[in-house]
């Protein structure tokens, strides 16, 4: 019978296909996603951004991004430096490329940590209830009551400063990158876990979950098969906002002086150091990092938005 419920669900999805042709759920999701024009636009621009930082790094080495030339400091954009140079004469274009890689990697890994933690903790708490719920929620509350900025500061100092460089996928990262990822990831899951819990609490009362339970499906099966997938919409919206948040957090951590160690560039530390130039005519210092941050976050959020509409079998029907 449990399988019947599952097939009932997929049938209901399939029935939506306008053409009457039976579509697989993923085809259907794609179909719905496409209707969200802004989301498609976001998808295109995000892909372009990713391609830009990956392909760019084949042509422009990291050494070039870190090469200092005091003679050329604060050069306005020209043919040689299409995005100008910074206070120590480094090429902003090269730094945008390599900084972008770091920012995207930090954002993606941190948000993965945070989503996994948040979903598991919130989901388990809501599903099992009782003392599991109590303990997990007390812990969440304890973490939540500490402002994230403060957690960022304290954990950054706590985890330590002397972490050796790591080599991953042929790229060398300073230890600070790892610290920033862990700090952001472990300080941003609480909101999501509360939302997931609230959602699971609500779903638990729904008929098909009760039915599944009464029919003797294992708890784990019910949890992963019914509750988590049905919470997807919420998780996706929260995690895209979360990815945006993580990229921003990286900027805040830089702002607080605990970010990615120089000379490694990140969009966050570029923007932070550009702050003093807003009034000073060296517009290229802040325009490019902020442009790339805004564009990335905007695209990511739009994608998340489209995905939410697409994932949720109920949302797009009436309006």
């Amino acid at each position: 019978m449990a399988t019947d419920i599952a097939s009932f669900e997929s049938q209901s999805i399939a029935r939506e296909g306008v053409t009457g042709k039976v579509l697989t759920p993923s085809q259907l999701i794609w179909r719905r996603f496409r209707r969200h024009r802004m989301a498609v636009l976001g998808m295109i621009s995000f892909s372009l951004l990713v391609l830009f930082v990956i392909i760019g790094s084949f042509y422009i080495s990291e050494e070039r991004a870190n090469a200092v030339d005091l003679q050329a400091r604060l050069t306005a954009p020209n043919n040689q430096y299409i995005m100008g140079t910074d206070t120590t004469g480094r090429d902003n274009f090269a730094r945008i490329i390599h900084g972008g890689q770091i920012s995207l990697i930090v954002g993606l890994t941190a948000v993965t940590i945070s989503v996994v933690l948040g979903t598991l903790i919130g989901g388990l708490a809501g599903f099992f209830g009782g003392w599991v719920d109590s303990i997990l929620m007390r812990f969440t509350e304890a973490m939540l009551s500490i402002p994230q900025l403060f957690l960022l500061i304290v954990l950054g100092k706590f985890i330590g400063r002397d972490i050796d460089t790591i080599t991953l996928m042929g790229k060398t990262f300073s230890g600070s990158v790892l610290i920033v990822i862990v700090v952001i990831g472990t300080t941003s899951w609480m909101g999501l876990s509360r939302i997931v819990r609230a959602n699971v609490l609500s779903l638990k009362e729904m008929d098909y979950v009760s039915v599944s339970k009464s029919l003797g499906s294992s708890q784990l099966r019910t949890f992963f098969k019914h509750l988590i997938p049905n919470t997807m919409g919420v998780i996706i919206v929260a995690s895209t906002l979360g990815l945006a948040g993580a990229i921003l957090s990286e900027a805040y951590v830089s702002f607080l002086g605990l970010g990615i160690q120089p000379p490694t560039a990140s969009w966050g530390n570029m923007l932070t150091s550009a702050q003093a130039f807003v009034q000073q005519g060296s517009w290229w210092m802040w325009v490019f990092p902020s442009l790339f941050i805004i564009l990335t976050i905007l695209s990511v959020n739009l994608i998340g938005d489209g995905l939410r509409d697409a994932f949720d079998p109920r949302s797009a029907r009436h309006l």
């Binding site: 200092v68 002086g257 120089p262 150091s273």
Partner: peptide, 29 residues
Amino acid sequence: TAPIRIAIATVAQADLAKIGVEFTPIHTP
């Protein structure tokens, strides 16, 4: 982590690299 210290350490790092010395700045609050 003072910005001016970061900038100066960056230059020192680049200068010393030219004579074969690896000078790695670590900025702590």
